[in-house]
Design a binder for these strands. Sequence first.
DNA 1: CGACTGTTTGAACGCGTTCAACTGCGGTGG
DNA 2: CCACCGCAGTTGAACGCGTTCAAACAGTCG
Lengths: 253, 253
Amino acid sequence: MSGATPRVFSTRQYPCEACPLRPLKVFRDFEPEELTFISKFKKGELSVEKGSAVLVEGSHSAHLYTVLSGWGFRYKLLPDGRRQILNYILPGDLVGLQGSLMGEMQHSVEALSSMLLCVFERQNLTILYRNHPGLAYDLTWIAAREEQMLDENLLSVGRRNALERAAYLIAFLHGRAKSVELNGHRQVEIPVTQQHIADTLGLSLVHTNKTIRKLIDRGMIRWREGSCEILDAEGLAAISGWHGLPETKRPLM
Amino acid sequence: MSGATPRVFSTRQYPCEACPLRPLKVFRDFEPEELTFISKFKKGELSVEKGSAVLVEGSHSAHLYTVLSGWGFRYKLLPDGRRQILNYILPGDLVGLQGSLMGEMQHSVEALSSMLLCVFERQNLTILYRNHPGLAYDLTWIAAREEQMLDENLLSVGRRNALERAAYLIAFLHGRAKSVELNGHRQVEIPVTQQHIADTLGLSLVHTNKTIRKLIDRGMIRWREGSCEILDAEGLAAISGWHGLPETKRPLM
DNA sequence: CGACTGTTTGAACGCGTTCAACTGCGGTGG
DNA sequence: CCACCGCAGTTGAACGCGTTCAAACAGTCG
């Protein structure tokens, strides 16, 4: 279910001043001194390949990460192996804040594609809180955003039926992906297998397959081996009764 | 489903210096200057009665609250009225942080019993972040804790069966209630109806009733009109395969 | 070529839903 | 005072959404 864990610290390829994400209009503008701090805060880059573990439940990680590129997901397991995917992780997202604050990781993170991560050291958080109240506020904001997404997910898994759930999830991921698309206006592709979808929706693989087929037959998505292409995001949102993501600017660490 | 909204700002009865919660051993010790700030930060007290709305989805609240006494819950609704309870709110918990940070509330909060709330003004958060990095850290910590609880809930609703879900939920609430019990060693009572349990677990009322009956028959809980008494918390945890709450100290705003 | 991953399909089963009806209790008003 | 209502809980029966079991196919990789 999760491959080996090869952690290669590459040399730093993206100085924060030339961050490819920061220019995107979803991210708020930062003050020069904030950027300077973040740049110092950043300790390097980590490249992980598809299927490998980024963080492991029960471990004490000394780092937290911002995703530069690639997709991942957070999940928890029950003792007998049942898996629940909690949320997905896209470029611009912060990973490992929970663990940094509370010590032990309570969930795991795995890469859905190859990923490039900015590495920050947990211990420097104290300095951040002491000297950069704006960034401290941002961290709380980021945690609150994750909470909002979980609220939505929980609503979905708890109260929507299979078709509504699938439609919501795909529309949701489509929205998130669009907001951090570098190359703009191409069809969005979600790099997941149907097993991932099943483990997110709380459904079996078989029934997930049959549900996805309905969405395909309605012309709303296209499915390729290991990825999902969205054709009709509004249609999906309509099925689930979902109103889309807020358009607020957000911070980027 | 939610009654009227009578909001009575009573005079301040509990100065922070004589806070009945703060002496509890679950809460971390605070520095004198932190207490002084919190005391100034606190603008009054709000008393709400059972069944009334504390916060409403879509509204822009100027306040955030710490629960002094009583129980409440956060929930979301689908357009057709299906309700999902996201989490419960107990004494010592902070309410409305999401809304304070992001503007519009994305969920509602309702009182399960009469509640007494400490009222803080949203706009003073800036001062907190600027002058009290320790408290700022605490706010992020509190948000991360909520995220952890949601993770657990999502795992439960997504991957546990009805009996496991019910057992987990009741054990979880038992643990939280115990940690903030003022009067110590009495049987914990959870002030919910079976409809609340159903809307938390993502089950129908009828099936929730039948599931709860199994727990009653096994001698693990007792049910009274509108409240649940826990008799065998370990038994419940065992059914669900849950390992209990962490024992870390936490902040109290 | 064989092994493996991801997807697909059919069929039987069963957990949980839905519909319906009834109980007990407390409050309310005629 | 009692009839009436509504809420919380309970129970039975039929139904159906989603699970489970089983088998098969396509594509990739060594």
